[in-house]
Computed example of a mutant assay.
Amino acid sequence: MDEYRSGPPPAPPAARTGPRERGAGILLGRLAGVPVYLAPSWLLLAALITLTYGQFLSIRRDLPLSTGFAVGFGFVVCLLVSVLLHELGHAVTSRRSGIGVRGITLEMLGGYTEMDREAPRPGVELFVSLAGPVVSLVLGLLAAGAAAVLPSGGIAETFAFQLALSNIVVAVFNALPGLPLDGGRALQALVWKVSGDANLGRRVAGWAGRLMALATAGTVLVLYARGVLEGLFGLVFTLLVAVTMWVGAGQAIRHGRIAASLPPFSARELARPVVAVTAATPLSEAERIAAQSGQHQPVVAVVDGAGGLIGFVHGASARAVPPERRPWVPVGDVARRIDGQHVLAGDLRGTDLLQAIRDDPGGDYLVVSGEDVHGVLRGADLVSLVEPSRPTVRRKST
């Protein structure tokens, strides 16, 4: 199963405290500047398909078992390339639309492309969502053309036919109108266009995804009971896809509800003011200066000798210092240096703002617009705005 993800699994930042999702895999390299990862779960699927398809060819074609396994492994590699090209379709169209791409991950049930933010308009959402199925359909038609001209009954013709069938099935299945499938993204875009509400589109597409999951499970059970679908592997695999669709659809529904409840504030509006001191300033003195600044909940920033901002006092570290030690501990010892992962654009808001702080929801972030510093956004401040209306969520793992 394929999908593309515009950021985190649909959960507020409090639910994301682990490592980046796309980093949980083997880095294969970069394609068109996009990092490509291979999830360990894919290796299990590769082994199962190699064994199943290899035995099938050995029996039907009267081939040595080793030859059947070799052809089966070649089929797995072609499937991997097909999924990669499908995801690259999402990635390229996303970047052409001005949306950054964090990476592509290939996994047991297909793959996903991770965007760094939500689509800004429904037209962009529709364009990006349909790019993958179109690529799969083109690949399927090319493979079908190859099967038509290859000698009938040969291994090459069978191989091309199976590749054509798999790509066409992927294209059609992913075009079904329900999240987390690509067709669900397209449905979300259409509802967004008509209603003007992206979150309503997400919820509608999520409920449609649940219907698609039930229909998929029901169809495969009927086909298996009637003997149309042979083999336990196909039954289990398809049911696993249906379960994954149900979970993803449910998370999309919750995501839509959470996003609809988010405050309309930007990172700039949520940022706390900054009070600057040097690294050698005692913590107690820095707190006194901040208290007398007259600003609301200021954050103590650390500057170098030239007045350049190099970091800010980390709240948890400062609170851990006993009161009697504060006159002797310099702020430099409880400060966090500024890094690229903790700098936010001032105009970020809504789900894009949640996406930006997802890897460290309890951290402090410098908020800037160009070279202008607006202040420091504390992740805990944003989480506190979300959590009162936050339903229980689980991390998406499809």
Rank of each mutant, 00 (worst) to 15 (best):
R5K: 02
A11C: 10
R16K: 09
G18N: 08
G18E: 11
P19A: 07
G23R: 10
G23S: 06
G23C: 00
I26Y: 07
V36H: 06
L38G: 04
A39Y: 03
A46H: 03
A47N: 03
T52W: 12
G54D: 00
G54C: 04
G54E: 08
S58M: 08
I59C: 10
R60T: 14
R61Q: 14
D62K: 09
P64N: 04
G68I: 06
F69W: 10
V71P: 03
V71S: 07
F75C: 05
F75Q: 00
V81T: 05
S82W: 02
V83N: 00
L85R: 00
H86Q: 05
E87K: 06
E87W: 03
G89D: 01
G89T: 03
H90R: 08
A91E: 07
V92H: 05
S97I: 12
R102H: 05
I104F: 06
I104Y: 04
I104K: 02
L106W: 01
L106P: 06
L109P: 01
G110Y: 00
M115N: 09
P122Y: 11
V124N: 13
L130A: 10
G132K: 07
G132L: 06
V135G: 06
L137V: 03
V138Q: 06
L141T: 11
L142F: 10
V149G: 00
P151A: 03
G153V: 08
I155D: 01
A156L: 08
F161C: 11
A164W: 12
L165R: 15
S166R: 09
N167Y: 11
V169E: 14
F173A: 15
P177I: 15
P177F: 14
L181C: 10
D182Q: 14
D182T: 14
G183S: 15
G184M: 12
R185P: 15
L187A: 15
V194A: 13
S195D: 01
G196D: 03
G196Q: 03
A198K: 04
N199F: 02
R203G: 02
L211G: 14
T216P: 13
L221G: 06
E230R: 15
G231Y: 14
G234S: 13
G234K: 15
V236M: 08
L240C: 09
V241P: 01
W246R: 09
V247A: 09
V247Q: 10
V247H: 10
A252Q: 02
I253N: 04
S266L: 02
S266G: 01
R268G: 11
P273C: 13
A276S: 14
A279N: 04
A279G: 10
A286Y: 07
I289K: 08
A291W: 15
P298A: 11
V303D: 07
V303I: 11
G307T: 04
F312S: 14
A316L: 13
S317N: 12
V321I: 15
E324D: 12
R325T: 09
P327D: 09
W328G: 10
V331H: 08
G340I: 03
H342E: 10
V343N: 02
R349L: 12
R349T: 13
Q355N: 01
I357Q: 02
G362V: 05
D364Q: 15
D364K: 11
Y365C: 05
S369M: 10
G370K: 13
E371M: 14
E371A: 14
H374S: 09
S384I: 04
V386A: 04
S389C: 07
V393Y: 07
K396P: 00
